[in-house]
Every structure is written in structure tokens, then in C-alpha cells.
Amino acid sequence: MDGPASGATSPDNPANPANAADADEHGAAAGASVAATGFGLKGPRGWAFRGVDVDAAAGSLVAVEGPSGSGRTCLLLALTGRMKPSEGTARVGGMRLPKQLTAVRRMSALAHVPGVTELDPALTVAEHLREQALLQRRFDGTLRGLLRTPAERRAEASLRIDAALAAAGLDTETLPKGSRTSVRDLERLEALRLSLALALIGRPRLIGVDDTDLKLADVERAEIWAQLRAVAGSGTTVVAVCSEAPAGAVVVSTAPVNTTNDTANDTTNDTADESADGTVKETADALAEARRA
């Protein structure tokens, strides 16, 4: 969640042409193709990543593979419009980077990115879901959305939440206290599924997931990769950071530019932190306004 309780750094805006043009009759957005050549991002202390090539069709499962500190998270944030690349060319859903960062950000969502989209351990699962649905409604500037009655808006929010939970494979009835379970009481896989559900509420064309296989048992890794394949199979492009890519994924590898020193890891972390600061504050302000609505 962006800031304390958001599922995406910048909520998907249904009124945005980049989304509306590819939405089907049920409101679900088509996936976004991802293509990049010589893609690179330079931070204050050097290159976070460089020379990355990507070629993935819409609805693909893209695995960003590499060791910790190799710029995986920075690449994820750059491809979703949260960080400005320094060199190379890229197109996401037909939008050029870095020229159309805002458009790419609007069509994408983030799940489980430490320091950017963290869950609030004090809130319950239901509270996270309600807040994200409320935030999504705030950014729905369509005429159809404005003309809906309160009852219709509540029903729409409920449908979005149910669909997102199903797509993320999270059954709240299996949790210790159902939807009233606090995030602090969730297992690692359950928290990952909740973060994924929150991001999916906005019906993004592309979703980015960080640390996908971190601290998961082999069985749990297989489960989450199967879930992400299902999300991609439904049309939403998935870009997932991992230590080891699963079979069948479009693999994008990262590696430290300079392996003779220890600056690569520091560069990755510092660059991500600096980029995330403005995004987190921006989203926190939006959340505060949504709570007052």
C-alpha cells in the first residue's frame, strides 16, 4: 500500500484515456505490453541498473530476476512510471518512458513494495480493502461514476473487492478472525495476497510485485507464482521481482554494474528511497482527503 494503507502508489484512473481505450464491457482493463531497450537508471552514487532489454506482450508474466542489490526494485519502479530512467527507450502500454511517466503510473499499480506500498499492521483486512475502494472511488472521475447513487457506489465497491480477492486467491473466511484479522496476524503469503488484492481493486493494466519469493517455502512460492500466472492469464500484465524466475515467465535479469565494490546495493536502496519519498507523501495526502470524504 502507498503510505499507511494504499494498494497502489497512484490509483488507476478509469477516466484516463490510457485505461478507457482498452477496457472491456465489464470495466476490466486490457494488459499493457512492456518493451525496453538499453534501459538504465543512474542514482547519486552510480548506476542502479543499466543495459536492460525487455520484450513482453500484454498479459505476460515478467520475472525480474537477480541478486539483492542488483537494481531489481528500481527497474520495477521505473517500468511502472514511479522512477525516471536515465537512458534507453521504453514503451509500456504504448506510452513512452520517460516522456509519459504520469500515463504509465495511472495504468499501473504496485503490490508489496517495501517503503512504498506497505500494509499498516494495525489495520484489519477489511479496513484496508474499504479504504482502497474509497480511494479508488475518489479517482473515478467518469460521468457514470458521478451519477451513481450511494447504494450503487457501495455495490460497485463490494464487487470490486470481491473480484480482487478472488483474483489474488485470498479467502478471508480462512483467516483467524475473518476480514477483521489484523495485518500483523497474517502469514507472509496471506499478506502478499492482500497486497495483491489491494492493487487489483483499481483494475490496472499492469501490476508490479516486489520480493515475490522472499521468505516463502517452496510450496508457498509455487502457490503465489500460480496466482500471478492466473492474473496475467486474465489479461493484466504482471512484473514480479524475484531471486529465481519460474518456468514459463518472460525473464529479465539484472546484475550489479560494478562487482568490484559495494556501491551497487547502496545505490539501489538510496535511489529507491529518494524516489519513493514524494510518491508516499502524495498518496498519504490523497488518503487523508479520502477519509474526510
Rank of each mutant, 00 (worst) to 15 (best):
M1P: 06
D2I: 12
G3P: 03
T9I: 07
A15I: 08
A18P: 01
D22L: 12
A35M: 08
G38S: 11
F39H: 03
G46N: 10
V54W: 05
A63D: 10
A63G: 06
E65W: 04
G69T: 05
L75H: 08
G81H: 06
P85T: 07
G88F: 08
T89W: 02
V92S: 00
G93M: 06
K99G: 04
T102N: 08
A103D: 15
A111F: 09
P114S: 12
E118M: 09
L119G: 00
P121I: 07
A126P: 02
E127D: 14
H128V: 01
Q136R: 04
R137N: 13
R138W: 10
G141V: 03
T142E: 15
G145D: 15
P150E: 09
S158M: 09
I161C: 01
D162A: 15
A163T: 14
D171I: 03
E173T: 13
K177T: 00
S179G: 09
R180M: 13
L186W: 02
L196G: 00
L198Y: 01
L200R: 03
I207S: 02
V209N: 05
T212V: 11
E220P: 01
E220Y: 03
E220M: 01
E220L: 06
W225Y: 11
W225V: 07
A226M: 07
A232Y: 04
V238R: 01
V241D: 03
G248N: 07
P256G: 08
N261G: 13
D262E: 14
D266P: 00
D266W: 12
T267Y: 09
A272E: 08
S275Q: 08
S275K: 00
A276N: 11
G278N: 05
T279F: 06
T283A: 15
T283Y: 10
L287A: 14
A288W: 00
R291L: 14
